[in-house]
């Protein structure tokens, strides 16, 4: 009995020590919710953290998720001060303090050594024989959702028809970008839905030039990544500083270099050479964001029949 009470005391004191350790640090803490390819050791996160901590006298903590979509899910955002990496279509603009820190164009990537005939529009793509495409499931991946928006915007009148024919070319819909890109790199598909900057990674880090992005004459959908301060965060001032910091020239350069996206505020200094040499596709212009649910509904009807 005595031993048991003793044990309880030990556990309790251990618990309090842990709590004290986590609350006792003197510096202000800025908790940033982000996705884990940003915060990973090889991503831009660690450098961004080190640079910001030089000027802020604070401690940055990344809480990163690998589950796509969680950055737009209110539940996961509650205890964070800043959210970094939410896609512009998923952002509700309830915060006043936000910035776009990078952007890219959805595009199909191919291997120029194995694919000879390159489609230059959705129409050519669906009419080309023996073409195998791998894309992401719009229910689980923002990239897959991007494709639906892209097709709807370029084909407002015959969206279901074109989607149905496109679906015939699709080998499979993967849960996320990683699986799709992996299947493509394994040589199991001719085209993969990704970003027009994807070839930059292979050129810069692997010295590999065979992967190329397709340019569609009808234009491409732009995707922008947003960093914002959560309105109910207690670190408004620090958060605002961080949001501004993300578009500082040297940080923009790091983002472009390591996040493989175009810098939001681009100039000759902050865009890597090889990225500048890539051709930017034509951007489609539109006024209203398309809601996700109706598009998914159409997709389910078309693709599951």
């Amino acid at each position: 009995m005595l031993a048991e009470a003793n044990m309880k005391n030990k556990i309790l004191s251990l618990f309090f020590i842990l709590v004290t350790i986590s609350t006792a640090s003197a510096k202000e803490v800025l908790v940033i919710g982000t996705y884990d390819s940003f915060s990973a050791e090889w991503g831009p996160g660690p450098i961004v953290e080190a640079e910001f901590e030089k000027i802020c006298e604070c401690d940055i903590q990344y809480i990163s998720t690998s589950q796509a979509g969680t950055l737009a899910n209110e539940i996961f955002l509650k205890d964070k001060d800043v959210i970094l990496g939410v896609e512009m279509h998923e952002f509700d603009y309830s915060s006043e303090n936000w910035n776009i820190y990078d952007y890219g164009y959805f595009s199909f990537i191919y291997n120029s050594e194995t694919l000879n005939k390159i489609p230059s529009s959705f129409e050519e793509l669906i009419n080309q024989e023996d073409l195998k495409v791998v894309v992401q499931d719009p229910r689980t991946s923002p990239v897959g959702m991007g494709l639906l928006r892209w097709m709807k915007l370029t084909h407002p009148n015959n969206f279901p028809t074109i989607l149905k024919e496109f679906n015939n070319k699709v080998l499979t819909y993967t849960p996320g970008w990683s699986e799709a890109y992996g299947i493509f790199l394994e040589g199991k598909a001719d085209l993969v839905l990704s970003y027009s900057t994807s070839p930059f990674y292979h050129q810069e880090y692997e010295d590999e030039y065979k992967y190329k992005a397709i340019e569609f004459a009808g234009g491409h959908l732009v995707t922008k990544e947003i960093v914002y301060v959560r309105p109910d965060s207690e670190q408004q001032k620090l958060g605002r500083e961080f949001v501004e910091f993300m578009v500082r020239d040297d940080i923009q350069k790091i983002i472009a270099q390591m996040n493989i996206m175009y810098p939001a505020i681009e100039n000759v200094n902050n865009i890597p050479d090889k990225m500048r040499k890539l051709k930017k596709p034509k951007e489609i212009q539109y006024d209203d964001f398309l809601e996700a649910d109706p598009l998914i509904k159409t997709w389910l009807e078309v693709a599951s029949s």
């Binding site: 979509g69 899910n73 229910r139 993967t174």
Partner: peptide, 28 residues
């Protein structure tokens, strides 16, 4: 989840779990 999504080849072959995941994570 993952095997069904990837090997199923399209939403015709899916599981309830995928729909649950979508409801919880994406559409709240």
């Amino acid at each position: 989840f993952t095997p069904v999504l990837i090997l199923g080849g399209g939403p015709k072959y899916s599981t309830l779990e995928v729909s649950i995941y979508y409801s919880v994570i994406f559409s709240n």
